[in-house]
Design a binder for these strands. Structure first.
Length: 164
DNA sequence: GCCAACGTTGGC
DNA sequence: GCCAACGTTGGC
């Protein structure tokens, strides 16, 4: 049982789209590091933090669950698909997907700016400078902390606390 | 729209 | 196998 964070642009496919559809293949990933995590490490039942990027308030907005083992990404085989890759053939697939199911929205979104102020999240890949992976691992302690924090309607202000 | 960071490509 | 050029990501 592991935890992950997945990035998505809400204008393309956001948490509300996932809720509407219930379940969705996480396709179009074209990065080898991300591919390796999808293909080699993700397991049914793993937890997913759903993150909105490239939008007015980048934030972790909800939870999802991995509901399939990895299988070849069908969009890589489709010449009409924007993610088509002629180098990936069914006999020797290059790219993989897992299916992801909607779990729930967080009680409140956790904006990136807020997360940067939390020393408890030291080491979280999302907060590392220049990180561009669309899929990344999350440590269980970070998962627990994030879920706990999202249940506080008014976040404790780290900077004020330390100054006070 | 700017720009830093990173991955990929391709010449050598 | 090195590395400069280029493209993409994504916060701001």
């Amino acid at each position: 049982m592991a935890y992950w964070l997945m990035k998505t642009e809400p204008t393309t496919f956001g948490i509300d789209d996932l809720r509407r559809r219930g379940r969705e293949p996480w396709d179009g990933v074209r990065n080898y590091q991300a591919r390796n995590m999808i293909r080699d490490q993700m397991q049914v039942g793993d937890g997913v933090l759903f993150y909105h990027s490239n939008c007015p308030v980048p934030a972790i907005v909800g939870l999802a669950t991995i509901v399939s083992a990895a299988y070849p990404d069908p969009t890589a085989f489709d010449p009409t698909d924007p993610h088509y890759d002629p180098g990936s053939v069914p006999e020797r697939p290059r790219w993989y997907v897992v299916d992801v199911a909607y779990d729930r929205h967080l009680p409140r979104p956790l904006p990136l700016t807020e997360l940067r102020g939390c020393p408890e999240l030291d080491g979280l890949t999302l907060l590392r400078r220049g990180n561009r992976l669309s899929v990344m691992p999350v440590q269980p302690e970070h998962w627990d902390f994030l879920i706990g924090r999202a249940s506080h309607p008014v976040p404790p202000c780290i900077e004020t606390d330390t100054k006070a």
